[in-house]
Amino acid sequence: MFEKLYSPVEKLKLAAFNKLFVKRDDLIDPYISGNKWRKLKYILAKAEAENKNHLVTFGGTYSNHLVATAAAASRSGLKSTAFVRGEKVKNEMLLLCELFGMYLIFTDRESYKDKPALFEKYFKSDVSAYFIDEGGASTEAVIGCSEIIDELNDVYDHIFCAAGTGTTAAGLLDGIVKNNLKTKLHVVPVLKNGIFIKEEISKYIPKIENLVLHTDYHFGGYAKTTPELFKFIKDFTANTGLLIDPVYTAKMFYAITDLQLKKVIKSDDKILAIHTGGLLGIFGMKDKF
């Protein structure tokens, strides 16, 4: 399932940039999308090596990670269960999870905070159960995301990615360090107080000299938006033909354009943006467009 990968690098035509490129991880798979595909690649390999056939994970009601895990489990002949944060609801994302055979356990927000305790409570006696943290955060996920750098045929002055847990960013930084590149990795946290992501990244990759954090582009916090961001999404997509989502990639591309406007990055700099997929999350905000 993880042998074939289609993620080309394409040049974006935007007036302010001469050398802006995007790594199209959103094209890898419609359901195991972008960085989710890369994170799950080695997570599932480890589960198989440990003879586990029941994937147990965590996420919100519009989680791309839940859909990706459900799809990956189904294609691999595995069972899957998810603890879903909040009260019981029905939506497009959870429908996909259930169609892929995932069992959903809706969990109050306080209990959800202690994920290992939830796993222990429900699956202590299930020797086939395999714990996957929210978003797939793990050493295996970092290894998978580091392969993005290995796939590049060119060297870039700057690489940009959006960040929720920092796992993808850690993988990118690992790839940059291993390949002895001078490339700056620009990470755009999509939640408030995103400075903690530097600490999360350093847990995996202690050498962070190439890391630059931009914490002012969260638009109010995780999954929070503003009319300005939605206008940016509409204009950007209409002008480039590239679909972006309000939670992650729109905030990243907004940051890139704003930083160029402020002369933090130059119009002639060679820039690569990582499109981490997650486009199904748009359905959670369809009423705002």
Rank of each mutant, 00 (worst) to 15 (best):
E110V: 15
T57P: 09
K121M: 11
S33V: 04
T226M: 05
Y254H: 14
Y248N: 12
A16Y: 05
A117F: 09
E120P: 04
G220S: 04
Q260T: 15
G59F: 06
A47M: 02
I176G: 09
K270C: 11
G221S: 05
F232P: 03
K46F: 00
G144I: 01
L12T: 03
S111A: 14
G144V: 11
K192F: 00
F253G: 08
I208F: 04
A45F: 05
M1F: 11
T61C: 09
L152W: 07
L78Y: 15
K286H: 13
F123K: 07
M285C: 06
S7E: 07
K39I: 02
L191K: 12
V84C: 14
S267V: 13
F219P: 00
A68L: 01
F283P: 01
P8C: 05
A255G: 09
P206F: 02
A223M: 02
N239V: 00
N64K: 08
D114W: 00
D157M: 03
G166M: 07
K192V: 04
L94H: 08
I132Q: 06
V190N: 05
T107E: 08
F119M: 12
C97V: 08
K234E: 14
G77K: 01
L55N: 00
S267N: 14
I274D: 03
K115I: 08
T226Y: 02
A169W: 03
K90Y: 13
F160V: 06
L27C: 06
L95A: 15
E228T: 13
K184A: 14
H186P: 01
F196W: 04
I208T: 15
A162P: 05
K88R: 14
N18G: 14
I271A: 12
F160M: 09
I143P: 02
A15R: 11
D150C: 05
V9F: 00
R38Q: 04
L280M: 13
A73F: 02
L27T: 08
G281V: 08
K113Y: 06
I197C: 06
I201W: 09
L213N: 07
Y112N: 02
G278S: 15
V247E: 04
V190Y: 03
L99V: 14
L229C: 02
S74L: 06
N35W: 03
V22L: 10
I233M: 11
G135S: 10
K263W: 06
T139H: 10
K184C: 15
A129T: 02
S63Y: 01
L280H: 07
A255S: 15
P206W: 02
D25T: 08
K52S: 10
I195K: 11
T167Q: 00
N53F: 04
K182Q: 14
Y222S: 03
L12I: 15
S138E: 03
V187Y: 03
H65K: 11
